[in-house]
């Protein structure tokens, strides 16, 4: 057979593509439930990380059940509505106007203290960044923070998921002394920049070389926390 004729080439290419496409879709469909499960476990593990509970792929679900007792959805007006915060897709919520957003809150217990975990989502330099902030019951002081990203520059912006970047968020406050919402600012200039700018209450050091990622993270914090203001003020202890 002449394997170089045009007809043969076309038929060969078409048949090959159809076979490969069918095979890949079949495999993708078969593996999808397991992949979804993994993504869920990761989310639970992130929420746990915000309250300082380390978990692995295997024990994340059990630990989540132990620590996260309740979750609900707030509105910008400060109302609490019933609903499962876990199913709220942040990527879709942050595109909406803040008055229409569903605002998930996870109520977590650790060592007899209650913490409230708020999910965040925004844009970094190359793609989405996200994270979770855990607040004390005053809805003002941060207990812990965890961030992650899809594809920030390794060694620079990608370091937002490192402990040395996340730890300084602890004990920062998002409201100033007059109760005005100020969010958290990232200060450019390497280690000690927040101290140099005299902003140790609402500021942390940015990552040198990761300015755009840090600015994106800062915008994410402001955007995602602002709609909670009424709810926070109403429910603080």
């Amino acid at each position: 057979m002449n394997t170089n004729s045009n007809v043969y080439t076309f038929i060969y290419a078409s048949v090959m593509v159809i076979i490969v496409a069918a095979l890949l879709s079949f495999i993708a469909l078969q593996l999808q439930p397991m992949q979804k499960k993994n993504v869920e476990i990761e989310k639970k593990s992130n929420i746990l990380a915000a309250i300082g509970v380390a978990s692995t792929q295997d024990d994340a679900e059990a630990l989540y059940k132990d620590h996260v007792k309740n979750s609900y959805i707030a509105t910008e007006a400060g109302e609490k509505t019933e609903g499962d915060a876990f199913t709220v897709k942040m990527a879709e919520e942050v595109k909406k106007a803040s008055s229409e957003r569903q605002l998930p809150i996870y109520e977590c217990f650790k060592n007899d203290s209650t913490f409230f975990v708020i999910p965040l989502r925004g844009k970094g330099l190359w793609g989405p960044v996200w994270g979770y902030l855990a607040f004390y019951e005053d809805f003002n002081t941060i207990y812990g923070a965890t961030f992650d990203h899809k594809g920030e520059t390794p060694g620079l912006g990608a370091d937002i998921n490192q402990d040395w970047f996340e730890e300084p968020f602890s004990n920062k406050t998002i409201f100033d002394a007059d109760g005005k919402f100020v969010s958290i600012t990232t200060h450019k200039g390497g280690k000690g920049a927040a101290l140099a700018a005299n902003d140790t209450e609402h500021g942390v050091d940015a990552i040198s070389g990761g300015t755009i990622t840090c600015k994106g993270l800062e915008k994410m914090l402001a955007d995602c926390l602002a709609p909670y203001e009424t709810y926070f003020k109403k429910n603080k202890k």
Binding site: L24, I27, A28, L31, Q35, N38, I41, Q57
Partner: peptide
């Protein structure tokens, strides 16, 4: 793609 999908399912 098969390798990638399998890793995502079994070695996330």
């Amino acid at each position: 793609i098969i390798v990638d999908q399998v890793l995502k399912a079994f070695a996330y």
